[in-house]
Design a protein around this nucleic acid. Structure first.
Lengths: 221, 221
DNA sequence: AAAACATTCAATAAAATTATTGAATGTTGT
DNA sequence: ACAACATTCAATAATTTTATTGAATGTTTT
């Protein structure tokens, strides 16, 4: 094959893969699937897409081999097709955070409103969890917690916060985490808990980053 | 701001940034700019695009803050807007190589045709360059070599190969590198040199990866 | 001042991406 | 067998993306 033809085909194919990611809904779907395998219905519910539309986006990702699916009875279970998918997603997230001023602005505004004054780094959490100094809460929907969570975290879904608030210790720092740096659930919870007098902070990253780092998790069979 | 609205805006913006990359010509342009700053004309010449079209793609990248430009006389000099751009590009390249079977197939085919039997890792090159065991050649266009190259490399542009072949040592391994893992120029040179009886191999990565790793380079002022 | 040059702009047509809708497929539970 | 259910398919219209063309802008050289 001629060099020119080769070059053209290579970059066309690379663009095929890249275009499969380059859509707001599919970026959300990849973040969701980074939490664990999921049905079409769950994706639709969490993103607010119609089931048909969610299915169509999942097909697009599947054609690009970024996700795989298997049939289980009447359900289709989708999952990320390999570690590179989340790695590329993370690189794009970092690119967005560093180059797109509108993203940083939106994040800063949201966090100011929610008084997310302090963030805890992964290293700090590792240390303080070992010393049993903190109470770690997973504020994602229970379903995602059950698919996999940080070892020693307690499920404390944002949407059920009022039922569970009485079980929280007043004497420990409470650290909340969710789906990752772009996820607002932990901020919402920190905001509410601080107004109730708890000493709450958010983890800077989320479950998928923790897991990708090889840190201890508990996963469902 | 409401959580739902925030989420929507964040992912729309992230898609804006991602879409700016998601085009075959712009992927090539980013790879070119990773070699060093460049004029519109050079980009157009290297990609085969018309100048107007190259300019338009550069505008798209500039609007997304992925490249910056400055005027120097009648020339516009474009460069990557920060290290994250090449990092994300690299992550997408790795994603393509791992998930898109057509890319691996194209690469394998091209390399079989060109007998790129052995590749040299960066670690191996570092060791052997120190011991002066190898002759390192930069096969990119001279212009890119002059903008920046691996320390101790000799310029040996693929397109001028026949004029320079007599200056090569027969007794050393010759290692050729170019723009990166997707670049075919090093393969073309290795192929030709091997047919001439030289012991030639290609570096698995390219100049931008070497530089991003903090390894020693020589850059123009 | 005029010519040469590098780049950008503006308009357009062709191609692609996207969300919506309703029907079709295939599985499970009654 | 039938109803309920999860998902996929197919068709469509609206929107976005893209390459092409030729003119416009602004700089350097003659």
């Amino acid at each position: 094959m001629k060099a020119r033809e080769f070059k053209k085909k290579i970059y066309n194919e690379l663009a095929v893969t890249t275009k499969a990611i380059a859509n707001p809904n599919r970026l959300r779907i990849i973040e969701l699937l980074a939490q664990g395998a999921s049905t079409v219905e769950y994706i639709a519910e969490q993103t607010g897409l119609s089931v048909a539309n969610a299915s169509q986006h999942l097909q697009t990702l599947k054609n690009a081999r970024l996700v795989s699916s298997e049939k289980e009875g009447k359900y289709s279970i989708y999952r990320l097709a390999g570690p590179r998918v989340f790695e590329a997603w993370s690189a794009l997230r970092e690119l967005g955070l560093s180059q797109n001023a509108e993203i940083s602005r939106l994040m800063d505004d949201y966090r100011n409103e929610h008084e997310t004054l302090e963030m805890v780094s992964v290293e700090e959490l590792v240390k303080r969890v070992d010393k049993d100094e903190v109470f770690l809460v997973d504020v994602r929907p229970r379903h995602e917690y059950e698919a996999g969570h940080i070892l020693s975290a307690t499920s404390f879904p944002r949407d059920e916060i009022r039922q569970h608030i009485k079980n929280l210790p007043k004497n420990k720092d409470i650290i909340a985490y969710c789906r990752g740096p772009l996820c607002a659930m932990a901020d919402d919870v920190v905001s509410l808990l601080r107004r109730q007098g708890f000493n709450a902070k958010r983890l800077e990253l989320g479950y998928p980053e923790w897991k990708a780092n090889g840190l201890p998790v508990e996963e469902s069979a």
